[in-house]
Amino acid sequence: MKSFETFHPLVIFAFFAAAIGLSMFFMHPAYLVITIFLAVSLNIALRRGQFFKDWKLYVPLFFLMAIINPLISHNGKLVLFYINYNAITVEAIVYGLSIATMIVSIILWFSCYNETITTDKFIYLFGKISPVFSLTLSISLRLVPRFQQQLHKISNAQKVIGMDYRSGSLLHRIKCTLRIISILITWALDNAIDTADSMKARGYGIGKRTSFSLFIFERRDGIVLLFIMFLLMVNIWASIIGTTTFYFYPTFSIIQWDLKNILFYCSYFLLLAIPIIIEIKGGIEWKLLKSKM
């Protein structure tokens, strides 16, 4: 049972724009811990098995990024040791780890984005701002699977007349592959004329277009959207007054733990936790509903 993806695309998109935008922005350790923790949690909630497969990719990436920085940057006061007279500092190591955390959490947020913003939601959202562009996208998306099928037919037909792109010399293979692409293009362009006619036949371009969608903006969407906007403002404010600022060089700034700062940290946590809260709430409500039946 997935709850978050049933919200209006605008809400989902606003969330990811806020989450990814802010995650790219904040290098404060507290903020980094919050974003990676919630990105991992949402990944587990939404993608489960797939997420654990992806670990093989994330972990090496994380360490690669963490190691590279201290080798390049030699700033910082806390020197651990020297390699070829270049200082390896604690600051540089921590900075490397922080950057790695940021990048990995952005990638993780994107994988949740890919899971929830399906192509029709994307096209719907962009249809509002840029209808022609989103229509072009939609047509393109429709054509890709069709072209793949046709590619298969063409390669079989060509195989029978000796143009097998999977055997023979490298040159022969490249030649055959491009021959197949060439056939595909002729075929595709010829058919495109029909599609264009079909658009015209259905009145495309005669007046102002409206857009149809199956998405309905409910009260709950409005509430969550307002919530996202409010928390986004709070976090931008926090950034302006300097709460989120953190220096690694020449040495670390101090992490503040007074009430004001803790409240700001909480607001960040709350913003990024919205989908998880919705998932948990949805799960509980479903169980209650079931138990009453």
């Binding site: 192509t119 029709d120 229509l135 939609s138 047509i139 998306l141 429709r142 069709r146 058919n191 029909d194 599609t195 079909s198 658009m199 259905r202 009145g203 495309y204 371009g205 005669i206 007046g207 102002k208 277009r209 409206t210 857009s211 149809f212 199956l214």
Partner: peptide
């Protein structure tokens, strides 16, 4: 195949109405 413009059935059904500017 050639006449289908969009990638979803529901969107294809509405395509002509969108062009005519019909309300939702």
């Amino acid at each position: 195949d050639n006449q289908i413009v969009t990638d979803k059935v529901w969107h294809e059904l509405a395509f002509g109405l969108e062009s005519l500017g019909v309300d939702k």
